[in-house]
Design a protein around this nucleic acid. Structure first.
Lengths: 198, 198
DNA sequence: GTCTATAATGAGATAGAC
DNA sequence: GTCTATCTCATTATAGAC
């Protein structure tokens, strides 16, 4: 059973995604909640708070998962695969939240925005470290790390759009197909350069 | 020599990208133009018009280029490479315009929005056709076309962010590195499955 | 073509009855 | 907890002097 605040937040996420944070009014949210706009204030403190409640928990979820993966003993390539899986799951569970992570974080208030950016930078740094490690141990090709990070992250960050467009796409297939496209582009032994050629 | 309208449009593009269309006020634009907000109306008709003047010409440029490439006699894979090059050039020339193509097209007025969406759909359809053709002629692997389109387009559409972040990155290197990452992931003979193996 | 002054509108938020 | 009425403020846009 969802609290009314959680209901508001989920409905707001969908509207923010469709119309943008500034393009969504409290009236629009209230209408979907079957109440008048001022009644929302019995459950929330401000419109800004709604955005924070959408974005910060997701940002924290990313950090928690990244720390878990990053500190584990599996190979760097396994870590990349687990990160891909995580992005796919989250995108399926909360596609609108994920969309807002890209499109509307800028509207966070100063303090929350700083926290959000700090989280995101840390996340990227750890992501880069894993890429670098997997280049060093020969699991992926020695390409420019910026380019690899860019290709991986932009694809993963846009996943919400894919799952919304192809709602019936099997989750496991999606995960495997994305891994295939992304990793076979950077895995050394996919390029006729691996030891299996000898 | 840029007309004052063009100046306004370019300045607005940068601000719209940084603060969002709704998050940017005419005052902010006017300030960067060293004038008062009402003076802008000597050069533009409305705030909405500025957005249209940013997005619609770019949308048309994409269509023109796509038609040119699509109707040419080069191989399907060559067509994909040319599309990648085009995305990279445009992203370098007008990164803010490109960002708005993704983030703020929703704020177009009804008529312009419809035109924009129609353009984009046609563009995607033609993109898919080229991917399909290059699967048929054996130039790229027989993966799910949706996934290939998704991976290519999201990476290309996010390119603006890369060029803004790494301003000194050599354009030719960027183009080649992106092609390498994207295409070697989908080219059949990169995966030990090509005829060169026999 | 630019300015100041000023509409006209719409949004977030509060007060207070029920 | 929900409502109606209202406040306050920002923003787009116009009017009219210079």
């Amino acid at each position: 059973m969802k609290s009314k605040q959680e209901e508001i937040i989920d409905i707001a996420a969908g509207l923010f995604h469709e119309y943008g944070f500034k393009g969504t009014t409290l009236q629009m949210i209230a209408q979907k909640m079957n109440m008048e706009a001022p009644s929302l204030y019995n459950h929330i403190n401000s419109k800004d708070q709604i955005l924070s409640e959408i974005l910060l928990p997701v940002a924290k979820a990313f950090m928690t998962k990244m720390d878990q993966i990053s500190s584990s003993q599996v190979s760097a390539l396994d870590k990349l695969e687990r990160l891909i899986s995580f992005h796919v799951s989250l995108s399926r569970e909360k596609p609108h939240h994920m969309a807002l992570m890209i499109h509307d974080w800028h509207y966070l208030k100063e303090k929350e925005k700083e926290a959000f950016i700090a989280h995101r930078n840390t996340y990227e740094d750890k992501f880069v470290a894993i890429i670098q490690r997997s280049v060093e141990n020969g699991q992926i090709r020695d390409l420019d790390v910026c380019i690899i990070l860019f290709n991986l992250l932009t694809t993963l960050r846009s996943m919400y759009a894919f799952v919304l467009r192809y709602k019936d796409y099997n989750t496991i297939d999606l995960e495997e197909n994305i891994k295939n496209v992304l990793l076979n582009g950077i895995k050394k032994d996919s390029h006729g350069l691996g030891t299996s050629m000898g």
